[in-house]
Design a binder for these strands. Structure first.
Lengths: 214, 214
DNA sequence: AACTAAATCAAACGATCGTTTGATTTTTAC
DNA sequence: GTAAAAATCAAACGATCGTTTGATTTAGTT
């Protein structure tokens, strides 16, 4: 499915409002007003509010990242280097699509989920955890990584840390006295800190004692 | 403020429904029906739906954990031991109040927040990060912990990991073939895995090279 | 220019929302 | 036992919800 400019405008406004106020907390009139279209256009183009968020998910999910998978795995980087590249890509992907990942996180918190969206999320998470599993196994076979690594929990810490950092970024800015930075400067700062923190965290956890070149 | 049995019943049902369907996604009629009271009782007792969730926050926030602070800090445990005790207490607190922490996490994702609730959350997070800061500083002064530790990000990883693990527990159960466990067995299993994972994660990250007794 | 299809609109639809009303029942206090 | 207070209820309130209608305008095709 491809969308015209007006449809994309509706989707993008909906994405921002769903992120800010939640799906149930956002009315189609809110969306229509901010997207500068008539209320009926939403049903006209998408069928329903429910179908609209499904269209959003379909759009955002399909445009993401099968490149990464082959790009990372096919390279001649060491296992740890691949893992570090992956960490940065996760940070970039989540920070570059904060609204959408906010919606996705909220969706995971709900127990009354749309089957379509639930399936999208499950598929994405399955791909992510499998990619990490392959990277870790590669590192283990090279003798660089420890043998007993809980892949699920490593994944959980990676995504959990980035997600929670983004959810708490206002608080983070305050207690670290970063109010003087512009929004862009702050995002860059946070990105760098997260990257360093996570790389350090996992390096000392999943690699063996004997030093390996970074 | 203290509540009678009926009021507590309403609060507890509201807590579960807000957790499952979100604040905006839950109607006062939903709550009234499941709590087996008349719709008007919610306004009668709490004033409004908004005041109801504020009452929930006030109730859950005041019943939590200033004991921990003095208990952990005043003991003769080593810095790492204190940190490990704190890790377990965080896991227990979040897993023991999943509904409420689900609501709290959702609230942090929203940009249109109730000032009262925002302030509750800010205060709680401030206390938590300060407690962790004191523990880390103590470990540093004893020479056990590294000098350059980003307290905010350590806190973020701790809470982010536990929160995300709970948000993804259905997925975790599936990909780890834990479907044969009862719900209680699974919770116990997850608690243990999380505890081991986080202790291991932080031990290798924040302690110095030379071994210190656990 | 004439016809067709797509887009846009104001208005209205019925349903549900949070809240209030006013009567009635139950509990409490003396 | 009786009066006051608290609790409970069905019903209704106005507002807003997502969606549909039907007329009108715009764009595309010949």
């Amino acid at each position: 499915m491809e969308y015209n400019a007006k449809q994309l405008q509706i989707i993008e406004v909906a994405e921002r409002l769903f992120s800010q106020k939640g799906f149930a907390g956002t009315s189609v009139r809110d969306i229509a007003q901010e997207a500068d279209v008539n209320v009926s256009m939403i049903s006209y183009y998408f069928g329903s509010k429910e179908k609209l968020i499904e269209a959003l998910f379909q759009l955002r999910m399909t445009e993401s990242s099968s490149r990464l998978e082959t790009l990372v795995m096919a390279s001649e980087l060491s296992a740890l280097q691949k893992f570090n590249v992956f960490i940065d890509s996760v940070i970039d992907r989540l920070m570059g699509n904060q609204c959408f990942h906010n919606i996705m996180l909220r969706e995971q918190l709900s127990s009354e989920r749309t089957p379509v969206i639930t399936e999208y999320i499950r598929g994405l998470k399955l791909r992510n955890v499998e990619l990490i599993r392959r990277m870790i196994r590669e590192g283990q076979e090279a003798g660089d990584f420890k043998k007993d690594i809980n892949v699920s929990l490593v994944t959980t810490t990676l995504y959990g840390t980035v997600n929670y950092a983004l959810a708490s970024q206002d608080f983070y800015k305050i207690i670290n006295d970063l109010g003087h930075l512009s929004e862009e400067e702050f995002q860059t700062h946070l990105r760098g800190e997260l990257s360093q923190h996570l790389k350090n965290l996992f390096k000392s956890t999943i690699t063996n004692e004997h030093h390996i070149q970074n």
